[in-house]
Design a binder for these strands. Structure first.
Lengths: 246, 246
DNA sequence: CGTCCATAATTGGTCCGACCATTGGCCCAA
DNA sequence: TTGGGCCAATGGTCGGACCAATTATGGACG
């Protein structure tokens, strides 16, 4: 078979659902609708778009499944996330990960991405971004000393600032999903009440390597943080003798 | 804020849709249905489950949006991925730019993940996995020589085999999304008709490092592939003088 | 005047029956 | 064997109806 350079997209004859979502995204953009805002009722949409309510509902159902929208019976349909006409929806489906392996898997992804993001951040961050990262670091350190332990929120704010300074929005979104995945099954620190403690000093060294515009140094420090969390996780797992089942 | 150990699942007022999906997942499990298999007609499901076809359709629409299922009018509804009652779906919405920067962003993600996956693969792959990777490599090399150039499909098959051998299903899913994001705006090789050509030899060296159980060597070879594609992309962009807009 | 509660209107959730568009198999003829 | 045309099956859309939860309304009562 000879090469077929053209992907030959299958022709979409019926794209009514997609058309509804496109129109809705355009509407949200023109109206400046953001998360929390309420969008028109299904009946209004059906009337305005000249389609049946069934079609509107099918379209909204898809957005609901993607977590973009929340429907409240008797109240209305509300935006949960910013929507746009050209967005890529990446549904990650994985076997119910309440076991140690799944937690480790999220850390493996983070190991790859956090190192890369830190390196890129050291290359691209401007003075303003570096100042912001420093600020987040200080907030985190303050919270650490006050509460005698790592604080998830402040810790995430710090990492988030680094991702944003990397100039690549994909880092933040993917790692945010890993964070959520991780915390969904990490309600208790597995009996290790100083969980994450060991990773604390590396946050400052990571900041220093970024401020020094040292990509490889920053990457190394970021990897230390992940390795430290991994070690804590293994420690807690060994203590609780987690075997894999929920 | 103090720790709130209980996730507090939002109250599910209406669980009819979910009940349908649960029943369908159970059915798929009992029948041993896998990807590619066709599942019962909407009308049959509605009759069997004692719900209306509308409800069945809403449920299937959610699965369709999650990419678990594919509907073909006039033919039926087919499984695209293994489904299970307790499976975690983490929808991820990414801004999909159509400019050069976005293409580069996907490569930055791949740089982090492919290196990590290659290293893990070298650590964990068993003889069977390594044999499969070798086979995919040979298929790719054969296609390369026959068509005088890289072939996307065979190339992806090779990388996919590596991801699967890494033991972490997240790698394949995330990078698959990056692939899609990349190819969505890369119909033509930007005028570089030997696009990807330079990355060809590194595929074999990558395989050799994996077969030798050399994690860091495998990581290095994987990074060479990404760097090569990046260089090609910059080359094509420079030629076409792409400035960012589509 | 303000508060409280029953009532009505609004809105999403489900159901039904019908029809359309596409697909795929079947049969028959060239 | 091949080709075309017919036809049943299947997903897609439609309109209308009713149910359930929520919210707004407005009057009664302290």
């Amino acid at each position: 078979m000879s090469a077929t350079p053209v992907p030959l997209h299958p022709i979409r004859t019926a794209a009514r659902d997609d058309a509804v979502l496109d129109a809705l995204a355009a509407f949200a953009a023109s109206e400046g609708l953001g998360p929390g805002d309420r969008l028109p009722t299904e009946r209004v949409l059906a009337d305005r778009l000249k389609v049946s309510r069934t079609t509107v509902r099918e379209a909204l159902t898809r957005w609901e499944g993607l977590g973009l929208v929340e429907r409240r019976q008797g109240s209305g349909t509300y935006l949960k996330a910013p929507v746009s006409r050209d967005m890529l929806h990446l549904p990650l489906t994985l076997p119910s990960g309440s076991d140690l392996d799944s937690l480790m898997h999220t850390l493996e992804i983070r190991r790859g991405l956090e190192g890369e993001a830190a390196a890129l951040c050291a290359l691209r961050a401007g003075p303003r971004e570096i100042a912001l990262i420093r600020h987040k670091l200080e907030v985190m350190e303050k919270a650490f000393h006050e509460r005698q332990g790592m604080s998830s929120d402040e810790d995430w704010d710090f990492h988030q600032a680094i991702f944003r300074a990397s100039g690549n929005p994909l880092f933040e979104q993917i790692v945010a999903a890993m964070y959520e995945l991780f915390h969904r099954f990490w309600e208790h620190p597995l009996g290790v009440h100083d969980f994450g403690h060991a990773s604390f000093p590396f946050h400052r060294t990571l900041y220093e390597r970024i401020a020094a515009r040292d990509p490889e140094g920053a990457r190394a420090e970021a990897l230390k943080i992940i390795a430290s969390v991994e070690a804590d996780l293994r420690r807690g797992a060994a203590r609780l003798d987690i075997t894999g089942s929920r």
